[in-house]
Design a protein around this nucleic acid. Structure first.
Lengths: 346, 346
DNA sequence: TAGGGCCTGGACAACGTTGTCAACTGAATG
DNA sequence: CATTCAGTTGACAACGTTGTCCAGGCCCTA
């Protein structure tokens, strides 16, 4: 322990540098660099001597220095809402695969739906000089990114659009998906349909709500305020909202759930109810097919979302420089039973 | 577009440096550094001038250079098997939270259960000079890490032990958990119990198999080879294995599933069978309580696994230097119905 | 054999930051 | 008034790598 105290500056245990390798191999510094980077202009004989020295010393190039010199970090940042949310798993993985294919590492973090934390994280990534950023925004004002983007940090927003700046964005068609889901319920005879969603300040939540209204209106149905509940996705709140809708004098006969977390809670509540209630949820859920009834959902392809965003990002990094675009991916209605339950009448 | 071509070296659009800030504020370079880092010894007046210059130029410190100078990157690497696997989501998130609390960023990647890819990823992280590594190993030989660890890269293995090197490891009690799960089935009257697991070369898979045998033996029951199926967790393979066990002349009356992916497929197969079969799965699954019957599982606390590993890692980074230890976290049996089904007899 | 070109190898500066250290200021002390 | 001292400030080197550029040595040709 005296070891560590006595040399406070010592971090990497004096790792060998190219200079050390050069000394050991009896060549110049730059020759080592050439060997390490596979550059031409080194005789096999010299190369072997260098390789042996590298081996013997356990040398590993210090990419920090390389980054400083070259300007590129070969890493991208991914800021999402919650690393633990199963919805983002496939997205995360898809982004990683694309990054890997381009030889880049992935730095990621959760904003926890907190705009301040998002900004902090994004700026930390910019300070690291990531080559690009993929952001699932928590906030609705991203002007803080303007200097970064101007400075050349490629940026793509996913799942929700950027606020107050013009940037690439890849979204699912929340509006169309929700409208289709609600229309599906209407098509099965429902006229009083509840909508339980996330905070409407979140873009996707707002769009889905809009889709709900659009479907109701298209069918000439009223959309009673008492049927719409927006707010946190915390189980208790959702539970209360569902219960209120079902215990009202004119109860809803079907529910549209605004995202996976809401859906899960709604399923739990409905499992305890006496009368059947139809349900369509936004976002697919593992095992949805094994519930009784099977869960009807409006599915988005999270992996495709991630892959599309990452492709766009690397296209930009490769120099393509067209105007920021908005890509909207279609959703898919998967009927499994819960959305096909007819209206219950006492 | 001529822009990009004409200056191939240009990466960050000539971002302002401390030198630029210093020039604009009419102060020395070091003074800017002091302001940026909140070091003492700068008059409020000077500080303000510097702040204004920073603001005006949109300066952001280049952490690459900082890293090179200071030796610490304030980042850790997490290598897991699959970012998209819901089991690792909470683990990932837990590690991130601890890292965040220590002001470190998290770089992560998937090994896809491929030892070569694991090594490639780990060494790339080492080249980046991450301060520490958390690895869910795919391979069983980690001697390639010896020089790195010797050079001071703190390393903690999670979920599975390291191979052929002495390092910190945090595990769930796979053996004990599986034994308890199988004993639970035995306790409910089962005597012919199937075990469907992952490739036995994976440490956890082997331990769980050992637990199965231990429980059977403790109850004085035979463990017929035909009841044990090990291999890939691909749905087709698992489906075949389950079907074979159930269609045998002496069919098993209960199944123990070795991990979440196996469990999911087994549930699907059992849902299509005529006669009830008891099931206990290793790993908890979302919505397990909503299946009919509810799914009985041996749950591990993935978040705790991640938190424990990260805590250990940062303890080392803070200079604690005790011998590598093996921490084993208990599992928890959660009875929900599927594991309490009595043996079916025709 | 001299001149030319090609190949290999190395010296040196630069990337943007931080640590060291010395110089300067103004005030307080004798 | 000289001296000291604390508090500010900046010049400079160093971190480890890569790009530039030049020096030799070699082979080929005239």
């Amino acid at each position: 322990m005296a070891e560590t105290e006595s040399r406070p500056e010592l971090r990497y245990g004096n790792r060998p540098t190219m200079k050390d390798v050069a000394a050991r191999a009896g060549v110049g510094l730059k020759t080592v660099s050439r060997v390490v980077n596979g550059e031409p202009g080194v005789t096999p004989d010299t190369e072997q001597r260098v390789q042996e020295a590298i081996e013997a010393l356990g040398f590993r190039r210090n990419d920090s220095a390389r980054v400083l010199r070259k300007g590129r970090t070969a890493s991208i940042g991914l800021v999402l809402e919650d690393l633990a949310d199963p919805f983002y798993g496939p997205l995360n993985r898809a982004v990683e695969e694309v990054a890997r294919a381009h030889g880049a590492l992935l730095i990621n973090g959760s904003s926890a739906e907190d705009p301040a934390r998002e900004q902090e994280l994004v700026l930390a990534l910019c300070a690291r000089r990531v080559d690009g950023l993929i952001v699932i925004p928590a906030g609705d004002d991203h002007r803080y990114l303007e200097p970064e983007i101007a400075a050349g940090v490629a940026t793509v927003f996913v799942d929700r659009p950027a606020g107050k700046i013009d940037a690439d964005v890849v979204l699912s068609d929340s509006f169309g998906g929700a409208r289709e889901g609600v229309a599906h319920l209407i098509g099965h005879g429902h006229r009083r349909i509840g909508f339980i969603g996330d905070q409407p300040s979140i873009h996707t939540a707002g769009e889905r709500l809009r889709g709900y209204y659009a479907a109701m209106e298209a069918a000439g149905l009223p959309a009673d305020d008492a049927w719409v509940s927006l707010g946190s996705t915390a189980p208790e709140r959702v539970r209360e909202a569902v219960t209120a809708m079902l215990d009202a004098p004119e109860p809803v006969t079907a529910i549209f759930a605004g995202n996976n977390r809401v859906t899960v809670t709604v399923v739990r509540v409905l499992a305890g109810r006496e009368h059947p209630v139809a349900l369509v949820g936004f976002d697919d859920i593992e095992l949805a097919d094994l519930l009784r009834p099977g869960l009807t959902v409006v599915a988005q392809d999270a992996a495709l979302l991630g892959r599309t965003a990452a492709d766009r990002l690397f296209r930009r990094l490769d120099g393509v420089n067209d105007a920021p675009a908005r890509v909207e991916l279609p959703t898919r209605l998967i009927a499994r039973g819960s959305g096909e339950i007819p209206p219950y009448t006492r």
